[in-house]
Amino acid sequence: SRSVIRSIIKSSKLNIDHKDYLLDLLNDVKGSKDLKEFHKMLTAILA
């Protein structure tokens, strides 16, 4: 869910600018399909 993804971003080791950017992107995501794609992208970034 959106709140879980937000929590993953906030607890990541990324610097604050990257976190803010990803949180802004997350706010722009519409629909469950796009949310799944965003989660895939985030997982790849944090891997």
Rank of each mutant, 00 (worst) to 15 (best):
S1E: 13
S1T: 11
S1F: 14
S1M: 13
S1W: 14
S1V: 13
S1A: 15
R2D: 06
R2L: 15
R2A: 09
R2E: 07
R2Q: 06
R2F: 10
S3M: 12
S3R: 08
S3C: 07
S3Q: 13
S3P: 07
S3N: 14
S3A: 11
V4Q: 12
V4M: 09
V4P: 02
V4N: 08
V4H: 12
V4S: 10
V4G: 07
V4Y: 05
I5E: 02
I5H: 00
I5Q: 02
I5N: 01
I5C: 04
I5P: 01
I5W: 01
I5F: 02
R6E: 15
R6Y: 03
R6I: 10
S7N: 15
S7P: 01
S7K: 11
S7Q: 10
S7I: 08
S7A: 14
S7L: 11
I8G: 01
I8W: 03
I8S: 03
I8P: 00
I8R: 05
I8N: 03
I8M: 14
I8L: 14
I8E: 05
I8K: 04
I9L: 02
K10W: 03
K10E: 14
K10N: 13
K10F: 04
K10L: 11
S11N: 15
S11I: 05
S11P: 00
S12V: 03
S12A: 06
S12T: 03
S12R: 01
K13I: 11
K13P: 10
K13V: 09
K13G: 13
K13A: 13
K13E: 09
K13F: 09
L14T: 03
L14M: 05
N15W: 07
N15A: 14
N15M: 06
I16S: 15
I16V: 13
I16H: 13
I16P: 15
D17L: 09
D17F: 07
D17G: 05
D17A: 13
D17M: 11
H18Q: 12
H18D: 12
H18K: 06
H18S: 11
H18C: 15
K19S: 03
K19A: 05
K19C: 04
D20K: 15
D20R: 14
Y21N: 06
Y21E: 08
L22K: 00
L22E: 00
L22M: 04
L22W: 04
L23E: 04
L23S: 03
L23D: 02
L23R: 03
D24G: 14
D24Y: 09
D24K: 15
D24R: 13
L25V: 06
L25F: 04
L25S: 03
L25T: 04
L25H: 03
L25A: 06
L25M: 13
L26Q: 00
L26P: 00
L26H: 00
L26R: 01
L26K: 01
L26D: 00
L26A: 01
L26W: 03
L26N: 00
N27C: 05
N27Y: 07
D28N: 15
D28S: 15
D28M: 13
D28C: 10
V29A: 07
V29R: 04
V29P: 03
V29Y: 05
V29T: 12
V29F: 05
V29L: 08
K30E: 08
K30V: 13
K30P: 04
K30D: 07
K30M: 08
G31Y: 06
G31T: 14
G31F: 06
S32D: 14
S32K: 13
S32V: 11
K33W: 04
K33M: 08
K33Q: 09
K33A: 13
K33C: 05
K33D: 09
K33E: 15
K33H: 12
D34W: 08
D34P: 08
D34N: 14
D34V: 04
D34S: 12
D34M: 13
L35T: 02
L35D: 02
L35K: 02
K36S: 10
K36G: 10
K36T: 08
K36L: 14
E37L: 08
E37W: 13
E37A: 12
E37M: 09
E37P: 02
F38K: 00
F38R: 00
F38W: 03
F38Y: 04
H39I: 12
H39M: 14
H39Q: 10
H39C: 10
K40W: 05
K40R: 12
K40M: 10
K40N: 11
M41Q: 07
M41G: 03
L42P: 15
L42Q: 00
L42H: 01
L42W: 02
L42S: 00
T43E: 14
T43K: 10
T43I: 13
T43Q: 12
A44Q: 10
A44K: 15
A44T: 11
A44N: 13
A44C: 06
A44M: 10
I45K: 03
I45M: 12
L46K: 01
L46W: 02
L46V: 05
L46E: 01
L46T: 03
L46G: 01
A47L: 09
A47E: 11
A47P: 04
